[in-house]
Simulated assay, not measured.
Amino acid sequence: MSTAPAIEVGTRNSSVPGTLERFRDLFNSLDAGNLNKLSSVYSENVQFQDPLSSMSGLDQLTRYFAGAYANVLSCEFEFGDAVITGEHVAITWVMRLRHKRIRRGREILVDGMSRLVIRNGKVTYHRDYFDAGQLLYEHLPVIGRFIRWIRTGAA
Rank of each mutant, 00 (worst) to 15 (best):
A68T: 14
R63A: 09
G112T: 15
L73T: 14
M55A: 15
N34H: 01
D81V: 13
D128F: 02
Y137A: 11
A82W: 06
I150K: 13
F23R: 04
A6Y: 09
S56G: 05
S114E: 07
V89A: 06
G67K: 00
Q134E: 12
T62R: 07
R148I: 01
Y69Q: 11
R103D: 07
N71Q: 13
Y129E: 10
R106P: 01
E138Q: 11
Y69N: 13
N120P: 15
G86M: 02
E78C: 00
G144D: 06
E76I: 03
T3W: 00
T62M: 06
S14F: 08
E138G: 14
A6C: 09
R22A: 12
G144F: 00
F146L: 12
R103Q: 03
V94N: 00
V72P: 09
V9R: 14
V41K: 02
D128S: 01
S40V: 07
L20Q: 07
N28G: 14
F79D: 02
A68E: 08
R104Y: 07
D50N: 04
V117F: 00
N13F: 02
R103E: 04
G67V: 03
G10T: 09
R12Q: 14
I147C: 13
F146Y: 11
D128P: 04
S29P: 05
M113D: 03
F23D: 06
L61N: 11
L109H: 05
I84N: 04
A154Q: 07
D50A: 04
A70W: 00
A90S: 15
I118Y: 00
M113S: 07
V94H: 04
V41Q: 02
S14L: 08
N13L: 10
R145E: 11
F130I: 02
L73W: 10
W93R: 03
V117R: 02
G10Q: 06
R63H: 02
L109R: 06
I84W: 03
S43R: 00
K100E: 12
T92M: 15
L109F: 10
V83G: 06
D111A: 08
N36H: 08
R106G: 09
H88V: 07
S56D: 14
I84Q: 05
F23W: 08
I143T: 05
I102F: 04
G57V: 12
R151V: 11
W93V: 03
A4C: 10
V9P: 10
L61C: 04
L135P: 03
N36F: 09
L26I: 05
R96Y: 13
F23G: 06
V9T: 15
K37A: 12
S2H: 08
G121V: 03
A6T: 05
L109E: 10
L136D: 15
R151K: 09
I108P: 12
N34E: 03
V142C: 02
L52Q: 13
A32V: 11
K37M: 09
M55K: 15
S74V: 08
F146R: 15
N28A: 12
R98D: 11
I91H: 08
F146M: 14
